[in-house]
Design a protein around this nucleic acid. Structure first.
Lengths: 234, 234
DNA sequence: CGACCATTTGATATGGATCAAGCGATGTGG
DNA sequence: CCACATCGCTTGATCCATATCAAATGGTCG
């Protein structure tokens, strides 16, 4: 799993980064729970173009982030050059939660993205006075924990199971009938699932061959036989 | 990774479970932070013999647990019979944190164990009034999240790296010079690292051959060359 | 001492990685 | 508007780390 030549894919993998965000702008759309309301009052919305860095690994974790539109990935680069994606965040998702005061993962925009940014200190101050906010912060961390635990289970499964789980996760999180429009590249998926692009690609074609899915274009996948996927899921 | 024959190891893997806990008893030892104090006032200490179930998967998550003495493992059985260990909990560690109202993992005593049990509702009620308690609950979840993220990174590494990381994690969490007294079996370690017992065993012998460790008895490991392990760790 | 269980060691099989080439879509300059 | 470069993806051939199957060893308890 670990070889010197892992650097190869690394080079092709991260072409044009360090794109800078655009200027901030106001935002008054979204849900209506207390935490959300407060965040909107306290935070600013920043737009990031595709592949822009939102924060770096070991940046100070001064802010909390919420996806307004677009998709974000968090990731970590291992010392041998491989990249592990921590998660994909869709509109409404909060990312940047950390236990310490430094981020352990970096974050980038997968697509052009708008992100609501809130000072962590403002939120914790608020949580000290408002138990509802505190409870919601806790719930966020607990939900994130559950997702991480599911990832752990995923990573001990076979390639087929991982890809099937990924597809099911995606339809659940961005429901649009049986069609999934993937915002991320094969490399992103591979680094999320702990596989190589080749294996992801082959697995998708194999699922297509067994009529479980259709792949009209590489970024679009249609689920044809959900129960076959669920069965694979474990 | 997934085959029908996975059931083989499954059978030998879980011999005598469903051992019942003994009767409760009072407990007034431990640390001195607010959450801890309150837990002691509100909770009871229960002793569990080796391999006893503390709670089952999908039991209602009515309680929070803190290890007083001994070691606990949380785990999940996949539908093909494989077991994934979610974590090992040493004295002082809190387990049973969940986002929903059902446990997603089961918990068992690895060794004879004493566990402090607290009603979750009592804690959250307390957190609503005491911001310090709320903050500590959040910190617990965040710390658990970080651990889970580290596990994710671990699971994409090679067998050598996983075993090395495991050994380093264990000395850090239960520091006793360079000696580690493992409370858990090879099967437990394997299920924690997403490997087979054979691979764990072989990796340990290989580390012994390269003089990184010594294995005087199967449950005792002496670190001889910590930097060699750290280098493997990634 | 003998039975049992955990661990180690050995031989072989295999899933996914790696290396390499081909292909289709998208964009650019002539 | 078309040749051509580029990029992301797929497909093919081979290799290797770890799983699997099997047997030997060792430690523990009656």
């Amino acid at each position: 799993m670990l070889t010197q030549t892992a650097v190869r894919s690394e080079i092709s993998r991260h072409p044009a980064r360090n794109i800078r965000p655009m200027s901030p702008q106001a935002c008054f759309t979204g849900e209506v729970n207390p935490l959300e309301q407060r965040m909107r009052l306290m935070g600013a919305v920043m737009p990031y173009p595709r592949n822009a860095e939102i924060f770096g690994e070991s940046d100070s974790a001064e802010y909390l982030y919420k996806v307004v539109s677009g998709v974000v990935r968090t990731y970590k680069i291992l010392n041998d050059g491989r990249r592990q994606i921590g998660g994909f965040y869709l509109p409404g998702d909060v990312f940047g939660l950390e236990s310490g005061d430094e981020h352990t993962l970096a974050a980038e925009a997968v697509t052009d993205t708008k992100v609501l940014i809130v000072k962590r200190s403002a939120l914790t101050a608020l949580a000290a006075r408002d138990a509802t906010v505190a409870r919601e912060l806790y719930a966020l961390a607990a939900r994130e924990l559950r997702r991480a635990q599911e990832r752990i289970l995923l990573l001990i499964k076979s390639a087929q199971e991982r890809v099937a789980s990924f597809l099911l996760e995606m339809t659940e999180r961005a429901p649009a009938g049986n069609t999934i429009d993937l915002p991320m590249s094969r490399q992103d998926i591979a680094d999320y699932l702990g596989l190589t692009i080749e294996t992801v690609s082959r697995t998708l074609t194999s699922l297509e061959t067994t009529a479980a899915i259709e792949v009209p274009t590489s970024r679009r996948i249609v689920l044809r036989n959900r129960s076959a996927l669920t069965r694979l899921n474990g």
